[in-house]
Computed example of a mutant assay.
Amino acid sequence: MMETDKMSTASSVGTAERRPLLQALVIERRILFGCTCFVGLCTFLWIAAVCTEKWVHIEGGSGIYLHTGRYFMWSDTGVWEMCRYVFQPNKTMTIKDAPQNTTGLTGQIVTRCTNYLAQPPMDNGRPIDPAYDVNIANYVRTMISFGIISLFVMAMGCGFSAYTFHNPRYMFKRLAAGIHFISTSCTFVVVQVMMSSVDHMKKNVRFIYPERAYHYYNISFFLAWFVVLVNLFAAASFLWYSRKRKGDKAATDELAMADEPTIIGR
């Protein structure tokens, strides 16, 4: 009878000692589940951000005169395409006769879009479209390359994150953390290259970024930053919770056995 009482007491003490570990496990599962869901959501947000032209808005105010005889009004820039909205006066004016802005002029707003992935029409070895710049085209190719890579890596990271709930072994969490870190790096490169391209336009391409214009970043740019931060948080969370927990440090016997050394055979 006394031996039975001792065994039940030991069992109850073990359960009580593991109660804080079980509570910590619940919090861990909720955080990692939230990270997995947000990474999956970011996959679609990234597609929406890359496919829209709302990254950078360049504002020309009441109009800035261009050498083509039109007035620059504003433009919306995406990852691979930029659309400019220019004012076309009804009458042709010389540079001397042209006013500084569109105040008092009659005309219409015309949209001009430049696709930097397509080969532009050439005239004597130079692009006909004055908005096409070779350096910007190189920036665009870099953003597209890293954008596509990050999309596949994010989808892969979401799959590995979900697998960690099926197999709680620490090595799979570290693998998921590494994949999330790669997707963080790739998406961050796209954001940084976009900022560099805007800086290049401001300094070197006056037709796209006139002297009196100014710019601000639009919704797609902030969506991209949201994707970067979510992937970074997911990488840090999976790495933090990938510590080995053996024996009495594990919340359950299943987790304790999962983190024991394993010989991987053929």
Rank of each mutant, 00 (worst) to 15 (best):
M1V: 05
E3H: 13
D5Y: 07
A10P: 00
S11W: 09
S11C: 11
S12R: 04
V13T: 12
G14V: 00
A16L: 11
R19C: 12
R19L: 14
Q23P: 02
Q23Y: 08
L25D: 05
V26F: 11
V26Q: 11
I27S: 12
R29K: 15
R30C: 12
F33T: 09
G34R: 10
F38K: 10
V39M: 12
G40E: 08
L41N: 09
C42W: 02
T43M: 01
F44N: 05
A49V: 05
V50F: 03
V50W: 00
T52W: 00
E59V: 15
G60V: 01
Y65T: 06
H67E: 15
H67G: 15
S75D: 07
V79W: 00
W80P: 01
W80V: 07
M82G: 02
M82P: 00
F87M: 07
N90M: 09
K91L: 11
I95E: 13
K96P: 03
D97H: 13
A98M: 12
Q100N: 06
G104T: 15
G104R: 14
G107T: 05
I109N: 09
I109L: 10
C113N: 08
T114H: 04
Y116N: 01
Y116I: 11
Y116A: 00
L117E: 14
A118M: 08
A118D: 13
Q119F: 09
G125S: 05
R126N: 07
P127A: 08
P127I: 08
P127K: 05
P130I: 14
V134C: 07
N135G: 01
I136H: 09
N138P: 04
N138H: 13
Y139Q: 01
T142L: 05
S145A: 14
L151H: 06
F152A: 09
F152S: 13
V153A: 03
M154R: 02
M154S: 09
C158L: 12
C158Y: 01
G159Q: 08
G159N: 09
F160Y: 13
F165W: 04
F165V: 04
R169W: 05
M171E: 14
G178I: 05
I182K: 06
I182Y: 10
T184M: 10
C186T: 14
V191G: 02
Q192M: 08
V193D: 02
M194N: 04
M195H: 10
M195T: 13
D199A: 12
H200D: 05
K202G: 01
K203T: 09
P210Q: 04
P210T: 02
A213Q: 04
A213E: 02
A213H: 10
I219A: 07
F221S: 00
L223N: 03
A224M: 06
F226Y: 03
V227K: 00
V228G: 03
L229E: 06
N231L: 00
A235W: 01
A235Y: 02
A236H: 05
A236D: 13
L239W: 07
S242F: 12
K249Y: 13
E254I: 15
L255V: 11
A256P: 01
E260Y: 13
